[in-house]
């Protein structure tokens, strides 16, 4: 039931698979490969925010959330590095601390950073499923209230769950915003039109062929 709900949600907008954007994406198989090797090199760079094991696990999570399809995966675009940079430089100390607490709750099954760094793809996938498709509808309602409210719940027993899901939402936001605002995605897989000319308010979607890259 829940899985079906989730699939239905995913179905929104699926009717337009023959868009200009997905046609354009056929040309980018080679570019994706090129960027993969860049990522491999960047793996050696020290993180500004994450511990080494955290960095590896976060990269794994991001690629489960946004895997390679006919468009690159999150890590192929360096979204993991971008998340690390924004967390280190843009997040306030309070928000950094809250993110860390939530991340620790999220990875609570792993004894230390070393163990986390050795997490298998299957283990990470189980974690992601536990925070998405496997939630009961009661849990979803509670999580949505966590996401909408700006204040932590007054019941201390709810706090670890609250912080865990706030972390998960922050990570999703960093990942999705970072991925779709990257140059490659915007210019090659979305419809990039920096100088549109006079506004047209109601035209056939097929005349555009995808989502506008710029907001």
């Amino acid at each position: 039931m829940n899985r079906r709900d989730a699939l239905q949600r995913m179905g929104i907008g699926m009717g337009y698979s023959l868009s200009a954007a997905s046609l354009a994406s056929l040309f980018h198989a080679c570019q994706s490969e090129a960027s993969t090797s860049t990522t491999a090199a960047s793996e050696a760079l020290p993180s500004a925010f994450f511990q080494p094991g955290e960095a590896r696990a976060i990269r794994g999570l991001l690629d489960i959330l946004l895997p390679a399809t006919d468009t690159p995966s999150a890590s192929e675009l360096g979204v993991d590095r971008l998340c690390d940079l924004i967390l280190a430089e843009v997040y306030s100390p309070e928000n950094q601390a809250a993110f860390r607490r939530g991340m620790q709750h999220f990875f609570t099954d792993f004894a230390d950073d070393r163990a986390l760094g050795n997490a298998t793809a299957a283990q990470l996938r189980t974690l992601v499923e536990r925070h998405t498709t496997q939630l009961s509808s009661a849990e979803r309602t509670r999580v949505e209230s966590f996401w909408q409210g700006s204040e932590a719940p007054s019941d201390p027993a709810l706090l670890p769950e609250y912080e865990r899901f706030r972390f998960w939402r922050s990570l999703r936001q960093l990942a999705i915003a970072g991925y779709f605002s990257s140059e490659l995605i915007a210019t090659e897989h979305l419809v990039y039109l920096p100088v549109p000319g006079p506004y047209q308010g109601c035209i056939p979607l097929e005349d555009v062929g995808g989502t506008w890259a710029l907001r």
Binding site: A6, L7, T69, T132, L190, T211
Partner: peptide
């Protein structure tokens, strides 16, 4: 029309989830 940011407060993940975010939302 909503764009990819609608995927943040969602419970989806993976290939289908990602590909549908390339299409305009409601």
């Amino acid at each position: 029309r909503a764009n990819w940011m609608r995927g943040i407060a969602e419970f989806g993940f993976g290939a289908d989830f990602k590909d549908q975010l390339f299409q305009p939302g409601p």
